Amino acid sequence: MTIEAVLFDFSGTLFRLEPDETWTTDLVSDAGEPFDAHRSAELLHHLTHPTQTLEFDAREQYAWDHRDLDPALHEQAYREVLRQSGVAGPQASRLYSRLVDPLAWTPYPDTGAVLKLLDSQRIPAAVVSNIPFDLRPAFVEHGWDRYVAAFALSFEIGSMKPDRAIFDWTFERLAVAPESVLMVGDSPENDGVATTFGCRFALVPAVPTGERRDALASALRAHGLG
């Protein structure tokens, strides 16, 4: 069946959060000691990777598991991550603010090109993301919001991948059947689940943006687009 719409994940697919050394330069522990390179790297890993190795109690685990459905739960979960990492007070507030700032995210090199390509072919694109904040400003910043037909954001929809409801919302909004849809994402579990609904799926690696030049364009070409 001809592809009539393409759905994209956001984090690790179209954009990536790439913190640099400025995120931790001024951090000091409760004892007043500056964070060394190892401790800084460990903290950034906890902040930017969805799989956590920290220990949570039942309340914090609930917040972590549901963080992308409720901004308040997301902040609660990451405040706990920061607390366990030895960061609190104004330092924690500063780091958390950067974490949820859509303008702090870096686009992959071919993001704009693939969105423009689909628009030129009159194939609607949608962003389907597990996320607790409005990511639209990231697209507006680059002038790409005009190429996105729908933003299915978990905290707005009340459903998150791999649940089907967030996908069904998108299919309905775009007026397409799942069998005519290509899903592009970096998670076999959360994005690849679309194949169980009849969609095609293209996996892209969530590597740093400088290491992935044309994975999105290649994914479209592999499915006859571009």
Rank of each mutant, 00 (worst) to 15 (best):
T2D: 12
V6P: 01
L7M: 09
L7C: 07
F8D: 06
F8V: 08
F8E: 07
S11V: 09
T13K: 06
L14C: 07
R16E: 09
E21S: 12
T22D: 15
W23S: 12
T24S: 04
L27T: 13
E33F: 08
D36A: 09
H45P: 00
L47A: 09
L47Q: 03
T48F: 04
T51I: 15
Q52S: 15
L54A: 05
L54T: 06
D57K: 09
E60S: 10
E60D: 12
E60K: 08
Q61T: 08
A63F: 15
A63S: 13
D65W: 05
L69H: 04
Q76R: 14
Y78R: 00
R79P: 00
L82H: 00
V87T: 06
G89D: 11
P90M: 03
P90H: 05
A92I: 06
L95P: 08
Y96M: 04
R98C: 13
P102N: 04
P102E: 03
L103I: 02
A104C: 06
A104R: 05
W105I: 12
T106S: 13
P107D: 11
Y108K: 02
Y108I: 01
P109I: 13
D110Q: 05
G112E: 03
G112H: 03
A113E: 15
A113C: 10
L115K: 02
K116N: 11
L118F: 13
S120K: 09
S120P: 03
A125Q: 04
V127C: 02
V128M: 12
V128D: 06
S129L: 11
N130Y: 01
I131S: 02
I131V: 15
A138Q: 02
E141M: 10
G143S: 10
W144Y: 07
W144E: 15
W144R: 13
Y147S: 15
A150N: 14
A152C: 13
S154K: 03
S154E: 04
S159E: 00
S159H: 08
S159G: 06
S159C: 04
P162N: 08
R164G: 12
R164I: 11
I166A: 10
F171Y: 11
E172I: 11
R173K: 11
R173L: 08
L174H: 00
E179W: 15
V181A: 05
L182M: 12
P188W: 14
V193Q: 08
A194T: 05
A194I: 07
T195P: 11
G198T: 12
A202D: 03
V204E: 01
V204D: 01
V204T: 04
A206W: 01
A206L: 05
P208N: 12
P208E: 09
G210N: 10
E211I: 10
A215N: 09
L216D: 01
L216N: 01
A217K: 10
S218A: 14
S218W: 10
A222P: 00
G224C: 05
